[in-house]
Nucleic acid binder design. Sequence first.
RNA 1: GGCGGCGUAGCCAAGUGGCUAAGGCGAAGGUCUGCAAAACCUUUAUUCGCCGGUUCGAAUCCGGCCGCCGCCUCCA
Length: 471
Amino acid sequence: MALQFYDTRLRRKIPFEPLAPGTVRMYNCGPTIYDLAHIGNFRAYIFADLLRRWLDVRGFDVTQVMNITDVDDKTIRRSRNEGVSLEDVTGRYGLAFFEDIDRLNIRRATHYPRATAHIDQMVELVQALLELGHAYRAEDGSIYFRVNSFPEYGSLSGKRLADLRQGERVSDDEYESKDDVRDFALWKAWSERDGDVFWETPLGKGRPGWHIECSAMSMDHLGREFDIHTGGVDNIFPHHENEIAQSVCGAGAGFARRWMHCEFLIVEGRKMSKSLGNFFTIRDLLDQGYRPREIRYVLAATQYRSRLNFTLDGLRAARSALQRLDEFRDDWKLYPDGDPTREEVEVVERAARGFDEAMDDDLNVSGALSHLFTLVRELNAMRAEGKATAGIVPRLEQVWTRWDEALGFVLPFEEESGDGLETGHIEALVEQRNEARARKDWNRADAIREQLAEEGIELKDGPEGTVWRRR
RNA sequence: GGCGGCGUAGCCAAGUGGCUAAGGCGAAGGUCUGCAAAACCUUUAUUCGCCGGUUCGAAUCCGGCCGCCGCCUCCA
């Protein structure tokens, strides 16, 4: 089966063919850095990461752009509430964001453009929209996009322009000067509330609207037309709908070829919210003793278009599952010499194929994992029967590495395995202990085991020998 | 009101017309073992919210019902 992804606009899976063979240009809606991101946000970033990784594995040359929103209502409000500068707030939470994505083993995107560094591009786009008659300046000096000027408006979300009249909750005085409640801000004229956050531009004194940054930055870094645009389902309307309108009208091009959106997550079966006390940041979970790798596993293991039920139980289950993978890797060391058997080769190749097919089919990570775990079980069973051979290990290692490239949690993270102890030193002690055990000198053997335990090394005695692992 | 989604074993979660309904966690047995710790193996849904229908054949398609949920102007 060929590589295919679900397209939000078409509402079905379609084969993936990039605009330029062999290269993919992708834009991901990124964080607004006004506070710590929560696990719901990270599900979206993990989704983008899984997509990017799979395209990497599939041999595409990927240019990945994720925006950083560093000026909007929320960042401004926060800086005012704290009485600090906007840069203070965005600097702090921008740093936290990168710390968190590193911890979660999310690959760095090619570019992380910031809104405040692209004011010129936004101004240009708004000017073009004004000239083309798609935008107008309202009494308050703000500039709005005229939704009526774009007949295709609503095609992504499946909303018809005429239906959008309904929810007229226009009580907010912010909207008073718009011609039509459905119109949205491209440029916000400076107001008291903005304090010292403003730019003097040909459009006047003010700041950009939220939607315009993604249009300007994606086109700046990826061109007027690119392959994939991702985000959370909540971005479909109005954010992405507005992006399309601005971009297509302003640049006269197709903008994003396809749209992919990741579902929400809920926590313990309920919507995540601060009032329910089920609101988690990455740091909250780390403080409770959960590991980044376990968080990544949970966020990745459910197919991105399904709603994910995030539970602490699930994190514990992830720990057990990951431990099973680690044990399996350790056990390769014990496979007796010999050429790979036909059966072994079949087990490995079937799993390798199954994994690829599942991932090719709209990133079905759950399906891919089932093939991975089936391989673990089958090879373990063969080993228990003395039918596993060291001859299979090179191929196994190759496949395993590919799986880690794709998922990012198959091999242990560096930070969790390395502690500076010399391998030679450990193996010498293990050797000494086994000599002691052979002499039935249990005191000596136990002393060595304890010594190693204090250094964070765990021993596992089995019929084929002793393996050690860093805890 | 408009648009859309979901309901699969104790929990999480694939599968969306046809081999025996993936996989993980948990649980129960067993193996290994100087002790210990762990690990490994096996078993664990005659059935896919309920009721009808279409079909040679449905968890998968259609209709109805019950339950849960999302979006409808700045929330991943």
